[in-house]
Nucleic acid binder design. Structure first.
Lengths: 241, 241
DNA sequence: ACCTGAACACCGTTCAAGT
DNA sequence: ACCTGAACACCGTTCAAGT
């Protein structure tokens, strides 16, 4: 079905496109096929419309991606009222993490983002506000936000973990015997050349039966480590001037 | 000058291209015009060669970028021998940071990278090795690496800072009077809608005369905060099993 | 107000061919 | 062994035109 056909089929009944529809479709497309699949041309085809039609609702590609981020970030849940600042920050960050697990493309999108929208600023402000209401000086709040880094958005920097699988990828076929043998050799070579990385992997495997690093545990552990550090600095009468 | 002309001009004297030349030229191009300018076509034109010629020295675009990262990471300086583990980690991370300041595109490249090369694994292993030689359990080393996150590569996650200027961008023209007025209004609106972000900016400006956040100080402060946390967990007899 | 069509200046990568 | 040329299937975005 060409865009013209699709348009003709719905010309009488369908209301004109609007920004929310475009962004919602973009998010759904990214969820399904990954961020790389979200091109102006692919997205427009999905909406039964010519590529240039999108430019009425979105300034350009950058604005489209910003809008997708906003749509998700706007859904972060605020914490219950009356919580201790540590717990309030914890809940905000874990809520961000929930959204991220639903939308795996969000990590890449945020890392590549170049604009600071009001919604995004609002999230940062809310988080800074929790610290400030807890009595931390703005100097310490500043340092705390930097130390949290991308955990603010619900993910830790992926310097150590392997890259996540993308939805577009097909599952790898089961290894043949010679491939399995080659893999064993690889692991042995790894252990020889990178003994500490190998030791960490072994230790981690021994700790969790699944063999993989427990990402959720790791995230919460590091988050709590940071919160404790801020608390300690705060308790040490870290002063603002 | 077309690629053919360039080739003809040097056909007798120039030796054939090799991988190192391709990667070095790619790094220089990225330093000069930003990572976005490093396309197979642009790079090949710069080398006086047809795009497909690069594929003899590089598997594909991903391999090209991996090679660029390797070239820089291979230049990270190892710390002096006999240092305390905390100081050794500190020096490795600060050396990574030096390289990053020379190559601003490195942050984006590492964040987008999908392959784990031996050179990159080697850096992670060296860092994990410093912790391990300090007597930390591999479980704690694992957590420490996660907490360091992208600081391993010399940058902190840019969740709070504004995106860095790209070499390709032209400097903005000086603001006219009405623009300056509009900017003042923006700042006032910021302070109203995002009071905590504004307070942090004000506090930071009061602290450093330049008005901007002192990135280097911030980086080292957070790095030291993390190192202290690991040390404390270590001293608390954090056990491995 | 919203969508279309054709065009422009780009991409990465294939294949078969040259020297 | 290394480089070329033509082609394919894509991009984002412009401009002028339709309804």
């Amino acid at each position: 079905m060409t865009p013209a056909d699709a348009r003709a089929a719905t010309a009488r009944t369908a209301p004109p496109l609007n920004r929310t529809q475009v962004l919602t479709a973009a998010v759904a497309l990214a969820d399904r096929e990954g961020l790389a699949a979200v091109s102006m041309r692919h997205l427009s085809a999905e909406l039964g419309v010519v590529p240039m039609a999108l430019y009425k609702h979105v300034a350009d590609k950058d604005d489209l991606v910003s809008g997708m981020i906003d749509l998700v970030v706007a859904g972060y849940r605020p914490p219950e009222a009356g919580l201790d600042w540590r717990e309030a920050v914890r809940q905000r960050v874990l809520s961000a993490r929930d959204a991220l697990l639903e939308h795996p493309w969000l990590r890449t999108a945020i890392e590549a983002a170049t604009r600071r929208t009001p919604i995004v600023l609002g999230h940062m402000d809310a988080l800074a506000g929790e610290f400030a209401r807890g009595g931390l000086s703005y100097d310490l709040v500043h340092h705390a936000m930097h130390a949290l880094g991308h955990r603010i958005w619900g993910f830790s920097p992926e310097a150590f973990a392997s890259p996540p699988p993308r939805p577009g990828d097909t599952a790898p076929p089961p290894p043949t015997d010679v491939e399995a043998e080659a893999q064993r050799a690889m692991v042995a070579a790894m252990a020889q050349h990178f003994p500490h990385v190998a030791a960490i992997a072994l230790d981690s495997a021994a700790r969790s039966p699944s063999g993989a690093c427990d990402e959720q545990f790791e995230f919460e552990f590091t988050l709590d480590l940071l919160l404790e550090s801020f608390d300690r600095l705060h308790a040490a009468h870290w002063s603002s001037s």
